[in-house]
């Protein structure tokens, strides 16, 4: 109830995994974790569908329908009749100068 984030498009075929460890390295939400023989799908619901694991998987063991999880961008694309949702901010600037987004840091 009141949770739309109970499913996503992440699919993992452990049979094709060569255990290179890239997916658990690139995932910012620890969806994958290193395993003994193959990568483990540890927390699939934490996936934000950024697509980093799919892009860096050399054997194509991971498939995810990646994109920008931004309501504004999605509604704007729908209004304009675009098939593909692109970041609503355009190519030349971004709506979020967020520290975490920019690999900028917490001060210690």
């Amino acid at each position: 109830m009141f949770n739309s984030y109970t499913t996503n498009t992440l699919e993992y075929d452990a049979g094709s995994c060569i255990n290179c460890g890239k997916c658990s390295t690139v995932c910012p939400h620890a969806v994958f974790s290193p395993g003994e023989k193959v990568a483990q799908l540890a927390d699939p619901l934490a996936c934000m569908e950024c697509g980093a694991c799919q892009l860096n998987c050399p054997t194509g063991a991971i498939v995810v329908d990646s994109g920008v999880g931004c309501a504004y961008a999605m509604m704007w694309s729908a209004i304009k009749g675009q098939e593909e949702v692109t970041c609503g901010c355009g190519d030349n600037y971004c709506c979020s100068p967020s520290p975490s987004i920019l690999q900028l840091g917490k001060k210690k």
């Binding site: 996936c47 309501a71 979020s96």
Partner: peptide, 24 residues
Amino acid sequence: ALNFTGSTTFTSVTGVRREIYAYV
């Protein structure tokens, strides 16, 4: 609030799409 999803670091396209259909 829904539009703030674009600024967060964790919302998935699938979830945001479901939110749009459910609430807008």
